[in-house]
Each structure stands twice: as structure tokens, then as C-alpha cells.
Design a protein around this nucleic acid. Structure first.
Lengths: 194, 194
DNA sequence: ATCCGCATGTAACCCGTTACATGATTCT
DNA sequence: AGAATCATGTAACGGGTTACATGCGGAT
């Protein structure tokens, strides 16, 4: 019996195959280009992961004839359960504790919501992301205040870095929210405050 | 024969013990507090890592009597080679390719330079970090331009997020550089450039 | 009576990296 | 001739997470 949750990597693979049925090599290429090469999975990570997804019946594969010499390829596409698993993942709320470590993964998730989730759900995601970021920024501010009197001089600067970065992230979330719903008539009461 | 390079985690442990000889539990507590709990190593990560450092003769430990009931503790301190390894690590230049993934580790490294490196070396580090960030931002800008015509609507927004975050990081590096050397008479030629 | 903090450690499990194997075609 | 691209896969190795073991003192 496989473990219950998929890894982040497996979820991302699932999403890429959802968007477009692909071979392993296709996926490699897309990682290299669309993420600026920030993460390039090795063969030893990619192919076993595809195998695990198939054993779980989230994807199926069919053999493809070799394209102009070389090995035969294997095209993966999602099953019904696979599609459901992907949608469930996209709809997961942002857990505040993860925003300090997994911010990148959340953004990948956001990018994949493109045509598959209704705008409303995307809005909910952004709102929960904004809340998590605001909480994290507040915690960093408390830490910065409590620390800077007495202590190593660069540690305070390092905390400032975290603060600057997460404030930028928070500002982005706010921009994204207003850009997504430029004319949302509901909730015009408390102006912009959640 | 152990692998040649230490892991990031091992290097950080080394640095913490360099700053102050510690027991395993001390280190746990410091992770929980000084990093806002962003990374709390498990026992299964911490104690074997300390063991590896000791086998490499980078740290030594001596038994401490149990403090008010409970188990005896084990206090770790650096050896000569350990101190050297830590200094070498602190002095490593910033490899541009790592700035997209390992930014957090670079900042931890910066925070640890506190009293041990001369200001000049810290300045060099910041300058190389700034260069790496500038390169990464430029690459993201190229990608943003090349992409936004035709493609999923949120992917462009996600790239904007990366852009916003790394620009904030870059701005921080610039602030840190000017703050570190507010009165550096050398190099007043090209005003502020590299 | 039980849970929490202190304090160190081990074992099972999982997954990622590195490095290699295979083999055809095309570029230099 | 040698290298790179296409394309999939496996084996060794390493290290992290989870969960458990142990055992005392103090708090609820």
C-alpha cells in the first residue's frame, strides 16, 4: 500500500500531464525551460516518479513508436482519479506554516490553476495566501523588534532580508487579487480589508 | 571514506557550534527560535549529523553530567579543522546558479559572518550576491518578455512573483552594501558601480 | 493520572542525486 | 572520431522524516 499523500514533485508532474499528455523527456524539457532551470529533475527522480503515479492508477501510459530512430517512447496521460487528485491539490488551502518554506511550490500551484479552476476559487487561494504571508511578515517583524538590541549585527540584516522578500510577496498577492477581480461588486463594504 | 563536501545542514551545524559549543538539544532549541521554526531538524537528522561531523574530526564532544535528572548530555565543540572548514565555507563565493534555489542558505551564511570575517570579506560576499541576483533578475525579465504574449494567464503572474521577490532581495543587497561601508574612501571612481 | 520538557538515540522507509547502460542520428 | 541530442531506465549511496525507546521531574 503506497503512502497516502503525493510528494510535491509528483503533484507537479501530475499537473503537467494534466495540462498536456507527455513523455518523460517532454517533462524534462519543460522543467528546463519553464522554470529557468531552477529545478531539473534527474532521470533517477523522474522515471521512478512516473512509475509510482502509474502504480497508483493516477496516470496511464501507452507506447509510442520511436520518432525517427532511437528508443520507443512512452506517452503518459491522466486517468479520471488522476484528474481528480490534481483538482483536489489545486483547491487545497494555503497552510500558513508552509509559507516560509514552500512558497515556490505554492506559486507553481497557482500557475497551474490557469484554465481549470473557476476565478472564484483562484481568488480564494490568493486570499488565503495573502493571509498566510501577512501572518509570517508580522511574525518576522516581532522577531526583528525583539532582537536588534544586542546581538550579532548581521543577523538583524538577515531578518530584514526575510522581511523584504515576504513583504514583496505579500504586495504581489495584493496586486494579483485586485487584478483578478477588477469589478467585483460584492463586498464593497469594508474597502479592501478582509 | 566520507564524501568530500559537507551538506548545507552540516555546515550550518558547524557554524552554530563554532559560535558557541552546544549540545544537540541546544541546537534544536536555537533552530526553533532563531529561524522562526522554518526549519526544525528532527532527532533523526540532528544526531546522526553530529556523529558524521565527529567522525570527520571536525567536532569533538565531551560527556556532561545530567542537569537535574534525566540523561547525561554531550557538549560539542569545534576542532582546529572544524574551524577552518567553517571559515572556508563562509568565504565561498556565491555561485550564480544557486541563487534561485539556495537563497535562504546564503542568508544563513551571511548571518554567521558576524564577528569572524573581516568587513572586507563580507563586502565581497555581498557584492557577489548582488551580481548573482542581478543576473537572475535579468534572466527572469527576459523570460517574462518572451512569454506573456500567448500562454496561460497566471503563469505570467507567477513569473512576476519571482521577479518581485528577487528584486526585493537585490535591493536588500544594495542597501546592505552601502550600510556596511558608509565611508569607504577607496574606489570613489566609478560611483557605486561594482 | 497524564502530559509536557528535557535529552539522546535508533530503525524503517522513502526519495533524490550521481553515475552508468543502451543505441540511433546529427553536428563539428 | 568524438560529442551532443533524443529517450528510457537501473543501481548504489546518502540523508531526511516518522515513529519509537528510554527515563526523570514538574505541571494540570
Amino acid at each position: 500500500m503506497p503512502r497516502s499523500r503525493l510528494t510535491g514533485f509528483e503533484q507537479v508532474l501530475l499537473g503537467m500531464i494534466f495540462t498536456q499528455p507527455s513523455t518523460g523527456y517532454d517533462l524534462k524539457r519543460r522543467f528546463a525551460t519553464t522554470s529557468l532551470g531552477v529545478y531539473k529533475p534527474s532521470s533517477g527522480a523522474l522515471y521512478p516518479a512516473l512509475g509510482r503515479l502509474e502504480r497508483r492508477a493516477l496516470v496511464r501510459s501507452e507506447g509510442l513508436p520511436p520518432a525517427d530512430g532511437g528508443r520507443p517512447r512512452r506517452l503518459y496521460h491522466l486517468t479520471e482519479e488522476g484528474g481528480q487528485a490534481h483538482l483536489d491539490w489545486l483547491r487545497e488551502p494555503v497552510v500558513p506554516e508552509t509559507v516560509g518554506q514552500d512558497l515556490g511550490l505554492h506559486l507553481v500551484r497557482f500557475a497551474m490553476m490557469a484554465p481549470v479552476l473557476p476565478e472564484e476559487a483562484v481568488g480564494e487561494f490568493l486570499v488565503s495566501l495573502r493571509a498566510a504571508l501577512a501572518g509570517f511578515v508580522a511574525a518576522l517583524e516581532r522577531q526583528a523588534d525583539a532582537m536588534d538590541t544586542g546581538g550579532n549585527p548581521y543577523a538583524a540584516l538577515a531578518v530584514e532580508h526575510g522581511l523584504a522578500v515576504h513583504r514583496a510577496s505579500l504586495a504581489w498577492a495584493e496586486r494579483a487579487i485586485t487584478r483578478l477581480a477588477p469589478d467585483s461588486p460584492r463586498r464593497q463594504g469594508r474597502s479592501g480589508l478582509n
